Simulated assay, not measured.
Amino acid sequence: MKTHILAAAGAVALFALSPMAGAHEFTQGGITVDHPMAFETAPSARAGGGFMTIANDGDEDDRLIAVRAEFPKVEIHTTLEENGVSKMVHVAAIDLPAGETVALEPGGYHVMFMGLDGDPFEVGEEIEATLVFEKAGELDITFNVEARGAVGHSDHDHDHDHGHDGHEMNH
């Protein structure tokens, strides 16, 4: 009996360490959201970023128009580069053309959770959120908080202060 329990525990541990362990997806109509995640943040972080891919397998274009979660402020951002300086700015929506997949990833579109104020994202934590699509409606999802450098994601830092009108980072 003890051998079976140890074998099962070993299998669970191996799965938890595999790249597929964090894979999860959510579907609403023709919209599929794959692997929503956020990186762990420093204890002093005032904001954290959320990332995922959104596939529109439907027959008509759609748009992500809002993200809601239990934070003082949640916005959709993109990263623009001007004269070697990256600036993150709020965008009203993300276009999701029919038959295409859009990536929300470091250095591009992302969800910005603002107002962490001493409550950092910690590895293993789950962040409940609702994505609001113009046509597909609302979709409840869960962002898994992962360690920086996790497989399949860039290691862009989102631990700095985010102003309401955008901010700049020197690269």
Rank of each mutant, 00 (worst) to 15 (best):
G108F: 12
L6I: 07
E100A: 10
G99A: 02
A136V: 06
D62P: 00
T27F: 02
A9H: 03
G48L: 11
T53M: 09
N144G: 08
K135G: 05
Y109W: 12
G22N: 10
E122Q: 14
G124S: 01
V145K: 07
H167Y: 03
D159M: 03
N170Q: 09
T101F: 10
F143A: 10
H158N: 11
V33I: 07
S18H: 02
E105S: 05
M169P: 00
D157W: 06
V12P: 01
A45L: 07
N56F: 11
V89G: 00
I94R: 06
A93H: 15
F26S: 10
S154K: 13
D161Y: 14
H164W: 08
T101A: 03
L14T: 08
T41L: 03
V132D: 01
E100L: 09
G50Y: 01
D165Y: 04
F39R: 12
E126W: 00
I31S: 05
V123N: 02
E100M: 13
G49M: 02
T78G: 07
G10K: 06
H160F: 12
I65S: 06
F15E: 07
M88N: 15
D59T: 15
A38V: 09
E128L: 09
L14D: 05
G118T: 00
K73L: 13
G29I: 11
A45R: 04
H156G: 08
R68F: 02
V85C: 01
V111F: 09
P36T: 10
L96P: 07
A38D: 01
T142F: 08
G49L: 10
N56L: 11
Y109L: 12
E125I: 00
M52Q: 13
G124P: 00
E128R: 13
E168H: 04
L104D: 04
I76R: 05
I141N: 10
E100Q: 15
G48I: 00
K73C: 06
P72L: 03
N56S: 03
F39E: 13
L96K: 06
V132G: 05
A9T: 10
S154W: 06
F39P: 02
T101K: 15
D165A: 13
A38L: 03
T53R: 10
N56D: 07
M169L: 09
G10R: 04
R68T: 14
T53G: 02
D59R: 07
I94D: 06
N56I: 05
D57A: 15
P106F: 06
G149L: 02
E134D: 15
T27V: 15
D161T: 03
D61F: 08
G108H: 13
A66T: 05
A103D: 09
H153A: 09
S18Q: 04
I76V: 13
H158Y: 15
E168A: 15
R68H: 12
A13E: 05
G166F: 11
A13N: 03
H156F: 12
A69H: 00
A11M: 14
M37C: 03
A7M: 08
G166Q: 06
